[in-house]
C-alpha cells in the first residue's frame, strides 16, 4: 500500500500585477515529499524561495496549481480552514525566530499546542524545552534570551506539536557560526528522531547538504 505524501504540489505558479504587465514569480513547480523526507531548496536572493515556502505552507494563495497537505487541498479551504490544516500537520522555524515577545519561553512553546487544543500543553512544552537544553530558562522572555537560545525555543515550539512536516526558512541565517551549527545539529537530530518531513529553504550549501534531496530555484523554476 502506498502511503499518502505529506506534501504534494502540482503545477504551482504565482504571478503578481506590475506596471509593465504580469510578473511571474514562480512557474510550474512540482514536488512531492513523503514522511521522513528532507528537501533543501536553495537559490539566490530574490529567486522566490520564501514565496514558494509561503505557498507550500498555505500562507499565501497560488495563482495556479494546487498544494495538498496529507492529501487535503489548500485550494478548497478558506483562510481559517487553511490555518486549521496547517495547525494539524505543519510547523515552522524562521530566520527571525518570531517568538511572541509578551510570552515567556514556556508559553511560546505551548502556543501551537494551545491553538490546536492539545491536552497537557504545559507538560509537553516543558519536555521540549528540556530537549533543546533550555529547561532552566522557561520563565525567561525572548528579550532575555540570546539569538541562539531564541532559535532553540523556536525549534522546541516547532517539534512540540509533533508535526508531519516542518518548514524551516533560513533557520541559521541570523546566528553566528557556533550557534548556527548547534541549531542545525538539533534541527536534523530532531527531524531524524521523529520522522518529520522537512522543507528547508536556505542559501547555505553546507546546511542544504544535510538534506536527502536538494533542488535549486532559479528564475521561478525548480531544478534538481
Amino acid at each position: 500500500m502506498v502511503s499518502t505524501p505529506v506534501l504534494d504540489a502540482r503545477q504551482l505558479s504565482k504571478t503578481v500585477p506590475a506596471p509593465e504587465g504580469t510578473l511571474t514569480l514562480l512557474d510550474d513547480i512540482n514536488l512531492t515529499l513523503n514522511p521522513g523526507d528532507s528537501l533543501a531548496i536553495t537559490g539566490p536572493s530574490g529567486s522566490g524561495k520564501s514565496t514558494l515556502l509561503g505557498l507550500l505552507a498555505g500562507l499565501d494563495v497560488p495563482s495556479g496549481g494546487e498544494v495538498r497537505l496529507r492529501g487535503e487541498p489548500f485550494s478548497a479551504l478558506d483562510e481559517d480552514g487553511r490555518a486549521a490544516l496547517r495547525g494539524r500537520y505543519c510547523s515552522f522555524v524562521f530566520q527571525a525566530f518570531h517568538l511572541v515577545a509578551d510570552l515567556n519561553a514556556l508559553e511560546n512553546v505551548m502556543l501551537p499546542l494551545e491553538i490546536a487544543g492539545a491536552d497537557g500543553a504545559r507538560e509537553r512544552a516543558r519536555h521540549w524545552l528540556e530537549r533543546v537544553g533550555l529547561g532552566h530558562r522557561e520563565r525567561h522572555f525572548p528579550a532575555q534570551l540570546s539569538g541562539g537560545e531564541q532559535q532553540r525555543v523556536a525549534l522546541a515550539r516547532a517539534f512540540a506539536v509533533e508535526p508531519d512536516l516542518l518548514f524551516a526558512d533560513e533557520p541559521t541565517g541570523s546566528l553566528d557560526r557556533a550557534n548556527g551549527d548547534q541549531v542545525a545539529r538539533l534541527l536534523f537530530d530532531l527531524n531524524r528522531d521523529h520522522g518529520t518531513a522537512l522543507v528547508l529553504v536556505t542559501h547555505d550549501p553546507a546546511l542544504a547538504a544535510h538534506c536527502a534531496h536538494h533542488q535549486e530555484l532559479v528564475e521561478g523554476r525548480l531544478s534538481a
Binding site: 505552507a57 500562507l59 483562510e79 481559517d80 490555518a83 486549521a84 496547517r86 495547525g87 494539524r88 505543519c90 515552522f92 518570531h98 511572541v100 502556543l111 501551537p112 491553538i115 490546536a116
Partner: peptide, 11 residues
C-alpha cells in the same frame, strides 16, 4: 505568527 501556527481569526 498565530495565523502561521494555525490560529483561526476568531481567536
Amino acid at each position: 505568527l498565530l495565523r502561521v501556527l494555525g490560529a483561526r481569526s476568531a481567536l
